[in-house]
Design a protein around this nucleic acid. Sequence first.
DNA 1: CTCTGGATTGAC
DNA 2: TCAATCCAGAGG
Length: 218
Amino acid sequence: MTTFCARRPLPRSFYVGDTVQIARALLGKVLIHETREGPCGGPIVETEAYLRDDPACHAVLRVRGADCWEARMTPRNAPMFEPPGTAYVYRVYTDHLCFNIVTQPEGVPEAVLIRAIEPAVGVDLMRRRRGVESLKALTSGPAKLTQALAIGRSLSGADLRRGPLRVLDAPAVPDQDVVVTTRVGVRLAADKPWRFYIADSPYVSRRVTGPNKIGPLQ
DNA sequence: CTCTGGATTGAC
DNA sequence: TCAATCCAGAGG
């Protein structure tokens, strides 16, 4: 996973289609943040899909008094309704930020959570921001990577094709290198196999071995 | 206004 | 395995 042939930013069309497949296709693509202190980032190694009819999705809320859900815009999830290729950054558990890439045409709230990247660019800068030395601890989790890349909430709503935070094209990761599992830390729709990671990457947040493992993509 | 429950991390 | 520790969203 040291091949680093970054190209142009991914176009909007990349982010339209089946969001689960887009999450899969984002593996290997390169996330780069050009900051004042320098560039930092690397290839994406772990993703999760969140869909418009998925109870775990921030844009899907329980209909009051009924046993069903519906997509609804709120102040927090508004960027999910923006055009494909928009950033959605939100806070969880006090001081942790998570970074998502919005998919689907404007008005359709689906997104891919970027859970881990391989630390390839600006490693020492990221070490300073994280306060740890170990490469494995730099970006191996959704809130770790936002801290390492200095992705703040002001980037929520930003266009990932232009500006300081970009997602660049790179060669596709072959199916035999991809593992599919259920999503981490979600209570609702916990059985959906919508998480993807690169099997042999040391920079994945969490490896699955037990009954949770859905298996490699054939 | 009050109440509930996290798309986490790091220490034990 | 578990606490830290705060806000978004819902309901009164």
